[in-house]
Amino acid sequence: MLHIKNLHASIDGKEILRGINLDVNPGEIHAIMGPNGSGKSTLASVLTGRDIFEVTDGEITFEGVNLFDLNPEDRSRSGIFLGFQYPIEIPGVSMVNFMKTAVNEHRKFRGQKAMTAGEFLQLMRDKKALVEIDSRLTNRSVNEGFSGGEKKKNEIFQMAMLEPKLAILDETDSGLDIDALRIVANGVNKLKRPDNATIVITHYQRLLDYIVPDFVHVLYNGQIVLSAGKELALELEEKGYDWIKKEVDQVQI
C-alpha cells in the first residue's frame, strides 16, 4: 500500500529525514517511536505534502501512485489521513461546514453525489457516537477553544468521517488522560478494517496497550534504526532510548 524508499527531506537546508525505508501493507498497524526531534512529525508532514519540507531524494508510492505527483488535497482524497500532533484552531470555520466540505470533496473525487443535509447529519451523529465526542464541540469553530484532549478526539472524529485507507496518527495520545486515551484507542480500533492501515506515531508504550501494533520502528536522527514486533515497545518503555542512541552513535563513529 505505502512504500517509502530512501526518503531524504530537509528544511531550510537542514536535513531532517536521512534515508527512511518503510513498507506498509493493508491490515497492518505500524508504530513509530523515537525521541523528540528525531523526525517523526516531519515524516508525517512529508507524507501529507507539506511544502515547507523539501524532498531531496527517495520515493514514496501509495497504491502504486507516486505521492509526489499529488497535492495535499488529492492525497487526502486518495485515502491518506493525518491526525495532527498539534491540531490547528481555525476561528470562524464551523466544524459542520468544514466536515461537510471535506466529505463532499471526497465523494466528488470518487464520482459520488454530494450528500443531502439529512444524510450528512446522520453521518455526523453516527461518527460522533463512535468517538464519544460532544455535540457542543462539533457545533463550534474548528478546534477553537478546545482543550488538548478535545482536539485529539476531534482528529479521530475527522478520521471516522473520512474513513481513510491509511491513517497516520501523530502523538494522538499525548496530553490525554486515561479515559480519553481509551476512547481514542477504541475509535481507532473500531475503524480498523482488513483493507486499511494505520501508522501510530507515539512516544509512549501506553497507547500500544490499546492499539496493538504489528510492527514497532524506532526513528532516530532521521533514520529508522530498529524495527521489530510489538515487544520492542515494552523494551523501550523499560530501558528508554539511551541504549539505542548509544548503539547508533557508536556505529556511526
Binding site: P72, E73, F98, A102, E105
Partner: peptide, 16 residues
C-alpha cells in the same frame, strides 16, 4: 494546510 489534508481544495480552503 490543515484544511487541505482533509481533501478541501486550495482555492476552496483559501476562501473558507
Amino acid at each position: 494546510f490543515y484544511l487541505r489534508t482533509r481533501g478541501i481544495g486550495q482555492r476552496e480552503a483559501r476562501l473558507m
